[in-house]
Design a protein around this nucleic acid. Structure first.
Length: 849
RNA sequence: GCCGGGAUGGCGGAAUUGGUAGACGCGCUAGACUUAGGAUCUAGUAUCGAAAGGUGUGCAGGUUCGAGUCCUGUUCCCGGCACCA
């Protein structure tokens, strides 16, 4: 599009307004203690998931959520709130380091350049952020507090009695030994099998493995000494407190499934005098256990295996060790396993059952051992069939289902003292029996594992920990932030030694202690950034008590609205909740949850309906759209595409559509004369005498306000289009009403609305004030009333006529009108009227046959 | 397999929560203005039918004066989890 053909000069006024907002700090949000802070206003905290500043820049998915929160934030400002709407950068991470290695530049340099580009792009979209609160997780001052929070975790344990974190000092006072204390810290060291990638030079979390493998990296299983966070202690609270949050059901379900709570029992079997505990959710089927299975990695395997079976057991263990969890999963159709030669004693029946090892039992869940009840468990059933193991019925189905492989509830049979009991009661009774006979106990089991928190990469926060005499110690808070030393070579060495180990001058301290050389994962920074925004430059605390108090309220979650992609459902959103709860337990924050309301924006697909990707060539770059149609058009289009949470394809024609709408708004105000935009003579500073026009304007105030609250932006825009069309067709455009339209349009298209308002204000000599700083208009309910309404007349529920009728016509009046209609009478011919249903102002339905 | 979300014109999507299905936009058709228009404005646009009228919200039933909306069953699509005992 050539310059001359631009329907309105957005290329001039958009940068102009952005520069002004920047220079005047229009959207600065004073907090407690800041000049200009008004504590009487209610707070509203609206948060975006901050971006990872990649080299590729923003993609069109970013402005989708960011525009939604921007509209909400601007709206809440106009309705009298102190709005906290900040932005920052999640700037540590493996991709940055990989990119740096590839380009030969230090990640600090590439990260700074990428942040600068992101900031430019964000500013070019006119978002009303308080830029004074901008943070990056790589800022040394930010790293300081990330490390400080880690030290809180390190300095705490989980008290089972009160179900909360407490300071380690309490245990010291009680005379606990160092080893005892180290065993219960929320941040602890464990030797555990982890996923190690030699070419990336780091371990990976389970959920990261697939992604990096698909990029061609290799991973292998290795036992390594790692830092873990005891998130499992919070399993129950993380499930229960979801109920207090206004989150999509799907996300709540995802987290619940991820945490994976199961109720059941531990049952102690014996193998040659040795006690082996299994976990089961069906203690009622204990009489039906016909064999036992241990995970191949179970520590008892070597000692219980008889000599005869040692070769096959060892061969099987070796084969399993080389398989990943995924491979095990892929092969779940084919059950495999070997007999150990050992037999276990069933504690309730005294029966001897064979002990097998099989990879369908995993060491990481429960006790790594199961009692197999093939009659009532699908997996056990399959395994028993494969290896010809006995299958014994102990549950009678309630319906006529086959009992073999029947996993639902029923009635206990062939089960001694349980016979005749329904499953739920049988479970309870068996647990009672186990507990009173010392053969087991009730147990609640979770799938959630402790969080593997260390990485061996360079581009992350170092642990504020030193080692001396084989023990770890926190470094003093005064030494924070502990920054990574400059390294010339941070390429992976191929060994699991952390990169920082190479910086010997940094690692080896004069007193003979050595620094921890692992670094934290990228999640660390994103776990608490929403707290730092409240008080971003505080030198003494991660957040002041005053700021924390003001930006929290009586709701369980601190942030009023959090918008972002669904990809973080179980990682970031779970980790952040965990950290927040620890800080809550320790008295640092007053809300038990970080995010009250969560909304996931839907993915934007390419024009071809496929996921956007470089290889498909269907990627839309926001910069190009801004260049051609302007920021307002991009913002408006992304909001007009459809419901925020829905997946929807991009259509460049749709951008043109909203751009035309903006041009129509512009042309209500201006006519083009000799390439200049002159104010339209239709705009007059007169009262609005056109009742219909006035009605549409007030309808627009009402609907746009309500729709913004509901995050229904597409319908709000549609109403503004209706309103604009009414102005376009009006002979006279009353100034006051037109400014009202500009005001409600302002949160959506801030540049255009401000520009039109500024220009017409100058012409009419009105005081110059920013639309974004004035009050949201109120609608007059009187103006919404129509004197005449359309009454739909139906015969047997089918529409037969529409009649204009006074808005408060009663049934008698409606009846007279309806039976006066020729069309209606035609359909009543030869019929007897049975009933009349009258909904005033809407429906008059005649039931006849 | 399990869990979650969805299915409405040629397309993106509306529908006051049981009350006129298809708002608004795209596309398309015709007209106006124009040297010209890929600009703008006006009118039309679910479908069958010349019309009257009929039919229509994935499919099959049900409840109701009335169902896109509620109930039962079913098909397909998208996302997530997946041997968790």
């Amino acid at each position: 599009m050539s310059e001359a053909r631009k329907p309105f000069p957005f290329h001039e006024f958009e940068p102009k307004w952005q520069a002004r907002w920047d220079a005047e700090k229009t959207f600065r949000t004073p907090g407690p203690g800041d000049a200009g802070f008004d504590a009487t206003k209610p707070k509203y905290y609206v948060l975006d998931m901050f971006p990872y500043p990649s080299g590729a820049g923003l993609h069109v998915g970013h402005p989708e959520g960011y525009t939604a929160t921007d509209i909400i934030g601007r709206f809440k400002r106009m309705t009298g709130h102190n709005v906290l709407h900040p932005m920052g950068y999640d700037s540590f991470g493996l991709p940055a380091e990989q990119y740096a290695i590839k380009t030969g530049q230090h990640p600090a340099i590439t990260t700074a350049a990428n942040i600068e580009n992101f900031r430019r792009q964000l500013k070019s979209l006119g978002f009303a952020y308080d830029w004074d609160r901008e943070i990056a997780t790589t800022d040394p001052e930010y790293v300081r507090w990330t490390q400080w929070i880690f030290l809180q975790l390190y300095g705490s344990y989980f008290c089972e009695e009160t179900n909360q974190a407490k300071p380690i000092a309490e245990l010291e006072a009680r005379g606990w030994t160092r080893d005892q204390i180290d065993d219960v810290r929320l941040a602890f060291v464990a030797n555990t099998p982890v996923w190690w990638s030699p070419d990336l030079g780091t371990v990976l979390a389970n959920e990261e493995v697939e992604e990096w493998k698909s990029k061609g990296h290799t991973v292998e299983r290795r036992p390594l000494r790692q830092w873990m966070l005891r998130i499992t202690k919070y399993s129950q609270r993380l499930i229960d407190e979801l109920d207090t949050l206004d989150w999509p059901d799907g996300i709540k379900m995802l987290q619940k499934n991820w945490i994976g709570r199961s109720e059941g029992a531990e049952v102690d079997f014996t193998i040659g005098g040795k006690s082996v505990t299994v976990f089961t959710t069906r203690p009622d089927t204990l009489f039906g256990a016909t064999y036992m299975v241990l995970a191949p990695e179970h520590p008892f395997v070597p000692e219980i295996t008889s000599d005869e079976f040692k070769p096959s057991v060892e061969a099987y263990q070796k084969a399993c060790a080389s398989k990943s969890d995924m491979d095990r999963g892929d092969l779940n159709k084919d059950k495999s396993g070997v007999f150990t030669g050992a037999f276990a004693t069933n504690p309730v029946s005294g029966e001897q059952i064979p002990v097998w090892i099989a990879d369908y039992v995993m060491m990481g869940y429960g006790t790594g051992a199961i009692m197999a009840v093939p009659a009532h468990d699908e997996r056990d059933f399959e395994f028993a069939q494969r290896f010809n193991l006995p299958i014994r019925q102990v549950v009678q189905p309630c319906d006529d289902s086959d009992w073999q492989g029947y996993t639902a509830y029923g009635t206990a049979i062939h089960s001694g003292f349980l016979d005749g009991l329904p499953t739920a009661e049988a479970k309870a009774k068996m647990i009672e029996w186990l507990e009173s006979n010392g053969k087991g106990k009730r147990r609640i089991q979770f799938k959630l594992r402790d969080w593997l928190f260390s990485r061996q990469r360079y581009w992350g926060e170092p642990f504020p920990i030193v080692w001396k005499d084989g023990h770890h110690h926190a470094i003093p808070e005064s030494e924070l932030p502990l920054l990574a030393p400059p390294l010339e070579d941070y390429k992976p060495s191929g060994s699991p030694e952390p990169i920082l180990t190479k910086a010997t001058a940094w690692v080896e301290l004069p007193d003979g202690s050595i620094r921890e050389t692992n670094t934290m994962p990228q999640w660390a920074g994103s776990c608490w950034y929403y707290l730092r925004y409240c008080d971003p430059s505080n030198k003494n605390r991660f957040i002041s008590h005053e700021a924390e108090a003001y930006w929290s309220d009586e709701k369980p979650g601190m942030v009023d609205l959090y918008v972002g992609g669904t990809e973080h459902a179980v990682l970031h959103l779970l980790y952040a909740r965990f950290w927040h709860k620890v800080l809550f337990d320790l008295g640092h924050v007053r809300t038990p949850e970080p995010f009250q309301k969560l909304v996931n924006q839907g993915l934007i697909l390419g024009e071809d309906g496929q996921k956007m990707s470089k290889s498909r060539g269907n990627v839309v770059n926001p910069d190009d759209v801004v260049q051609e149609y302007g920021a307002d058009a991009l913002r408006l289009y992304e909001m007009f595409m459809g419901p925020l949470e829905q997946v929807k394809p991009w259509q460049m024609k749709g951008v043109e559509g909203v751009s035309r709408f903006l041009a129509r708004v512009w042309r209500v105000a201006f006519e083009e004369q000799d390439g200049e935009f002159k104010i339209s003579p239709k705009i007059q500073d007169v009262p609005c005498t056109d009742k219909e026009l006035l009605r549409v304007v007030h309808e627009t105030i009402k609907k746009v306000g309500e729709d913004i609250e509901k995050l229904s932006f597409n319908t709000a825009i549609s109403q503004m289009m209706i309103c604009t069309n009414a102005f376009t067709q009006a002979e006279v455009v009353p100034l006051h009403e037109f400014v009202t339209l500009l005001t409600v349009l302002n949160p959506f298209a801030p540049h255009l609305s401000e520009e039109i308002n500024a220009r017409i204000s100058a012409v009419f000599g009105r005081p110059e004030s920013l639309l974004s700083e004035i009050k949201w208009p109120t609608y007059d309910p009187e103006a919404l009333v129509r004197n005449e309404v359309e009454l739909v007349v139906q015969v047997n529920g089918k529409l037969r006529d529409r009649l204009m009728i006074s808005k408060d016509a009663d049934e008698e009046a409606a009846k007279a009108m309806a039976f006066g209609s020729a069309k209606v009478n035609e359909h009543l011919e030869g019929k007897t009227i049975r009933k009349i249903i009258f909904i005033p102002g809407k429906i008059f339905n005649i039931v006849a046959n």
